[in-house]
Computed example of a mutant assay.
Amino acid sequence: MAYHPILWTFRRCPYAIRARLALASSRVTVELREILLRDKPEAFLQTSPSGTVPTLQLPDKVIDESLEIMVWALQQNDPQRLLDMPQEGWGLITVNDGPFKAALDHTKYTTRHPDLDPKEERRKAARYLLSLDERLVGQAWLFGDRPTLADLALLPFVRQFAHIDRAWFDAQEWQSLTAWLDQFLDSEVFLLVMRRYATWSEDDAPNWFNG
């Protein structure tokens, strides 16, 4: 039997969502193992150096950074040319994964950050989203008429932020950003990567995942 990579994942985690998006685009078949973050199985903890999802288990190594998983998958097969992206796209991902993700967490998990003003943290996140909206005016994707790695890397986090208070989000003056997000939420690939799987158990048959 051919070996297939194993993807340890958690359905709602934005890092895991973007890894699954890239894997779906690449059409690389993986065994998907859905876990609960509050009850991580020992087999996962023995595999992942960081104990975080997503983790991709390969025959010769383990990748436990979502962006690295995305790049690995698309290096195997990239029919949409997602890696064909201007250098500026890497800068967008860096800001998304750094200052924006911090402001998102400070807005969403207020009880964890009692020393911070959640309204100010939301304003910080909004400034970044407004910059994305300006980029998206007149085009469907961040760099034109087709998606790139940056779109797939950012969209799960914008979705997470929007769902903190969707009514507030929809009331903001970022129509292009909202259209970008909604086309993603309505896409077949999003429905595919958000399919529900039972929590992994050693006794269950494998769940095979590909695009």
Rank of each mutant, 00 (worst) to 15 (best):
A167I: 09
I17P: 00
S66L: 05
I164R: 13
D151A: 13
A16H: 03
W90N: 04
Q46E: 15
L56S: 01
T94L: 09
R127H: 09
P118S: 05
D84S: 02
D165M: 08
V71D: 01
P49D: 09
W174S: 04
P14D: 11
R159V: 06
A103C: 02
K119T: 14
G211K: 08
L74Q: 04
P147Y: 12
P114R: 06
R135Q: 06
A171M: 08
W200H: 15
A167C: 04
R112W: 14
R27W: 01
V158D: 11
G91E: 02
W168C: 10
R27I: 00
G89C: 01
D133C: 04
P86I: 00
A22P: 08
R135K: 07
D97G: 13
W72I: 00
Y3W: 11
P14Y: 11
R33E: 10
P99E: 12
L21V: 05
D204F: 14
V30E: 04
A103M: 03
R27D: 07
E134D: 12
D151G: 13
F209Q: 09
F10E: 07
L83N: 00
P54K: 05
D64Q: 00
L74N: 04
E121T: 04
F190L: 05
L181A: 10
H163M: 14
D145E: 10
A73F: 04
L136V: 06
D204N: 14
I69E: 00
Q139N: 03
D84Y: 05
V71C: 01
I63R: 00
P54L: 00
A171Y: 09
Y128S: 03
M1N: 07
G138K: 05
D78C: 07
Y128T: 02
Y197W: 12
L21E: 07
W90I: 02
R123D: 10
P5N: 06
W200R: 07
Q183C: 15
P5V: 03
T29G: 00
L181T: 14
R38N: 15
T111S: 14
T94I: 08
L181M: 12
E34K: 11
A2I: 12
E120G: 02
M70H: 01
F190T: 05
M1Y: 04
F184N: 15
H4L: 04
T9K: 02
L155Q: 06
L181I: 13
W168F: 14
R127V: 10
A167R: 11
P99T: 13
G89T: 01
P99C: 09
Q172E: 15
R12H: 13
M85Q: 01
Y109C: 10
K119E: 15
G138A: 02
M194E: 15
R166V: 13
P59K: 07
C13K: 01
D165Q: 11
T94F: 03
K101C: 08
H163A: 13
I93C: 03
L129S: 09
R159W: 09
D151I: 11
R135N: 00
D204L: 14
V95M: 07
T52F: 05
P41R: 14
Q76A: 08
N207P: 09
R112V: 12
D151K: 11
R159C: 09
D64Y: 00
